[in-house]
Amino acid sequence: MELVARCQSGDRAAFRQLVEQYERTVFNIIVSVMGDPTEADDIAQEVFLKVYRSLPTFRGGSQFSVWLYRVTVNQCLDWLKRRRRRSAVMSLDQLVDQSEGDLDFLFKDASPDATETLDEARLQQAIHAALNTLTPDHRVVIVLKDLEGRSQEEIAAILDCPVGTVKSRLTRAREALKERLRPFYEAWKAGGN
């Protein structure tokens, strides 16, 4: 909070420290929610500009990180509403087609020597593709809970909704994700894995 107070008094060096402390998390939330890294830089810039402008009005009623992630999530949802073009990320089916039906890249346990660049890149695309099949509301809770490791209470504070809503969204989002992966997983299992 001391850092935030210094930022509020106009200390640019303190704001730089604040940005460097949170930029990685902010970026990862953006990339996961948008399902596409191409716009992440622009959105992150907007997030930190908004935070910079609003810092004088931040009263510390909530944690700074909660407030920052709320700004981040809202900015992503705004962009998703405005976005006309489709995400450049391939669908899961396209990715599986590209790997000629070999689903190891999706389900095989990662081992130290399983670091083939192509498989790894395809895996990361597959994660985004799987997340992209969810609605933005569901994607946000999965990202915050299962990718960023936030508690349900924190997510409720970030999304400004009751914990019960977070729980039900999380359950539905996880179920939807599981059902999207089911045919691939069953095909992989049927292949003797």
């Binding site: 389900f107 346990d109 994660i127 299962d146 990718l147």
Partner: peptide
Amino acid sequence: VDLVRATQRLLARRVPVAPP
């Protein structure tokens, strides 16, 4: 449970993106 584990494992293998 196997499918749930596979789903969670897939998410856990996400590599954090470094800011540009």
